[in-house]
Design a protein around this nucleic acid. Structure first.
Length: 375
DNA sequence: GTACCTTTGAAGATT
DNA sequence: AATCTTCAAAGGTAC
């Protein structure tokens, strides 16, 4: 099966990744990250100074690092086994008593599409769509508080909106009446039964499913955007109308979704690329246990995704681009994009397009460390 | 209007 | 088997 090896092989691999980073001066990182917040922005700016100039090399570096990390996987498999056993055995029963998987009707089910009136409830989504599982994190309560320790504890003192752990709906910028406040009687499943286009063949609707038309009713776009590409091909008569099911989020993506708001609040940055750089560094600064939460979360998500869409393959979404289902790309555009990427990697010395963060250069900030190197 | 940027991880494709 | 490529999210930026 592509998504999940029930024995946990892939997942272990994922966990291996998690652990691999920790051998690279974890203690130092932790120390550094304790004072990280204030420095993040400055570091980022500094590191971005040469970023665009070396971006291609950085990519190569990253690839090398990835491969290196993979090398660690085998090294730490033993530990992972123990971690995995621990997690399977009780992590989500003890650490995350409110863990949503398989305990709630269906975290993927888009509530807002139930009816026009339900739209006003905006149960799940953030402005840009919240991952259905992420959206359920509020159920986790403070047992699942993945906030890395390096985050300042006094964030709220800085005027940062830092909702209490009990009110993660605010943390996720959930609208009033968000999922965290959804009464059990308003379960996902009952609403799902009223769904039409997003209904999965299994009978379990899933926000990952885009209506074939790609058109989003203003009443339910909130939910269907959850997994839908923002722009859908209006019509392709010849193609069998196939809903687009998005990939389940990996551990880092889940982490990003959760921590993005914090980083945005802490820093003045809004550019996602910059935020992601910070999040990437923080991710590496997490302890194994902290990362394990997200790996496990991602594992569960893949599991659920696989249960919901047993025939789904990541390959489907490769084709979506060619089909134009993932947007208004033509086949030619798609090929162009691929060509550009290839060229970029081949020609590392190309000046290329001006990075969105090149503006930082104009600050005259020194310290040309690449983010990855800084780790 | 939309591709790009940027991150890590998973999975599929290619070598 | 090892390596490469694509796509998941996000939102400002550049074209």
């Amino acid at each position: 099966m592509p998504q999940l090896s029930s024995g946990g092989g892939d997942d272990q691999g994922a966990n291996d990744e998690m652990i691999s980073f920790k051998d690279e001066g974890e203690q130092d990182e932790k120390i550094q990250e304790n004072a990280f917040t204030e420095r993040d922005l400055a570091d980022l700016k500094s590191s971005l100074v040469n970023e665009s100039e070396t971006s291609s090399n950085a990519t190569a570096v990253r690839r090398g690092q990835q491969n290196e990390h993979r090398g660690y996987q085998e090294k730490h498999r033993e530990h992972l086994d123990s971690v995995s056993k621990h997690q399977d055995g009780g992590m989500y029963k003890t650490a995350y008593p409110g863990y949503p998987f398989l305990m709630l009707p269906d975290p993927y089910i888009p509530n807002g599409s139930v009816s026009p009136s339900s739209n006003k409830v905006s149960v799940v989504q953030q402005s840009h769509g919240m991952h259905p599982l992420t959206s359920l994190l509020p159920y986790s309560n403070d047992h699942f508080n993945p906030s890395p320790p390096h985050l300042p504890t006094d964030m709220s003192q800085k005027g940062v909106h830092r909702p209490q752990s009990q009110d993660i709906s605010g943390f996720y910028s959930l609208p009033p009446g968000g999922v965290g406040q959804m009464p059990p009687s308003m379960g996902w499943f009952s609403h799902s039964l009223m769904l039409g286009p997003g209904l999965h063949p299994t009978g379990i609707p899933h926000p990952a499913i885009m209506p074939p038309s790609g058109k989003l009713d203003h009443h339910d776009h909130y939910d269907r955007n959850m997994y839908a590409k923002p722009h859908q091909e209006p019509k392709r008569e010849k193609e069998p109308k196939k809903p687009v099911i998005k990939k389940p989020l990996n551990a880092f993506m889940l982490y990003m979704k959760e921590m993005r708001a914090k980083v945005i609040a802490e820093c003045t940055l809004k550019e996602s690329a910059a935020i992601n750089q910070i999040l990437g560094r923080r991710w590496h600064a997490l302890t194994r246990e902290e990362q394990a939460k997200y790996y496990e979360l991602a594992r569960k998500e893949r599991q659920l995704h696989m249960q919901l869409y047993p025939s789904w393959s990541a390959r489907d979404n490769y084709d979506a681009g060619l089909r134009g289902c993932a947007g208004e790309k033509s086949k030619a555009d798609w090929g162009k994009k691929k060509r550009r990427k290839r060229e970029k990697q081949q020609d590392s010395s190309a000046g290329g397009k001006r990075s969105a963060f090149d503006t930082f250069k104009e600050d005259g900030a020194p310290a040309p460390l690449l983010p990855m190197e800084a780790l």
